[in-house]
Write a protein that binds this DNA or RNA. Structure first.
Lengths: 159, 159
DNA sequence: TTTTGTACGACTCATTCGATCGGAGATCAT
DNA sequence: ATGATCTCCGATCGAATGAGTCGTACAAAA
């Protein structure tokens, strides 16, 4: 469950690869093209191209046309979060259909729905999680995230 | 992104409904059948039946045949976690295909894959999150979960 | 101007998910 | 005890989402 799409996988791989060729120093920046990434990770070129275009449109990377063209990171790796990447490629985070809806709600269960509120809490927590991890964090091998829960704290559990 | 299936939605709603009719007291337990839930939440009966069957097989609920039959909670609401429900209906948690694989790995990217490790960390955190929230928590309206991240702590971020 | 490589849109195919149908088993009423 | 009714249960069908492909247009370096 909760498997993310191939686009997201490819996008993250590509970003990691592009970032690896810049080292945070613009002077050493090396432009990397679609074909190079596709061959490195055995990804269908056309599909990867589509992914890169989408991310370019979102400002995550900068595209450069023509021979010797390719892609460069559009932001500092510390400012690119996993959440941004996934949102760019898969749309906004939403565990259910009625996550962030306007008035046009077609959900027939809304009136008696009893799970919306708790699921929204979980969704919010997941978003914080994804938004707290950056591309920079993905490159180092350091532990990144701690999670703490108070939901299961004991308060006189009789069984 | 990360939208969970209708089965999961229906399953959680049904569980909440079943639990509401038991109040943790077996003496007051009221058997509730598929049709009742389906009408209450406007869910296709046959599909809901399938969902309930699956959860019964997992031990989350107990099924009772014959007239006046139906379903009852199989465990204490405090011992039923969201993770268990979702795993029962949608299979094990896995952000990518190579999440928990044996030797038969067909992923062509594995050799040069640079995102597997960090994604496994995120996956683990999500699992803790889903496993820390119980059906009992879903019924009360109290705040349940806090999350703390150390990944984005400032250490001289220049921009 | 020619060549090379990216950007972009439309299209096809496969897989998963939602939804449906008919049969088997169990319990209550007679 | 026996029938009738109601439920659970497995197998099947159709629809929608996503993965992957093809062809054209555009931009920059030689």
């Amino acid at each position: 469950m909760l498997k993310l799409s191939k686009k997201a996988d490819y996008g993250l791989m590509a970003l990691q690869h592009i970032a690896s060729n810049q080292y945070g120093d613009v002077a050493r920046a090396r432009v990397v093209n679609t074909k190079e990434i596709a061959e490195e990770y055995h990804i269908p070129v056309e599909l990867l191209a589509k992914v890169l275009q989408t991310m370019a449109r979102s400002g995550l990377i900068d595209s450069h046309n023509g021979p010797k063209g390719g892609y460069l990171l559009g932001k500092n790796p510390r400012e690119i979060t996993i959440a941004q990447v996934l949102e760019s490629l898969e749309g906004p985070l939403g565990l259910m259909d009625c996550s962030h809806e306007k008035e046009s709600d077609t959900c027939m269960q809304r009136e008696h729905c009893n799970i919306r509120t708790p699921l929204l809490k979980i969704q919010s927590s997941i978003y914080q999680l994804l938004n707290s991890m950056t591309l920079q964090d993905m490159m180092g091998g350091t532990p990144l995230i701690t999670i703490q829960s108070v939901a299961t704290e004991q308060q006189g559990v009789e069984r």
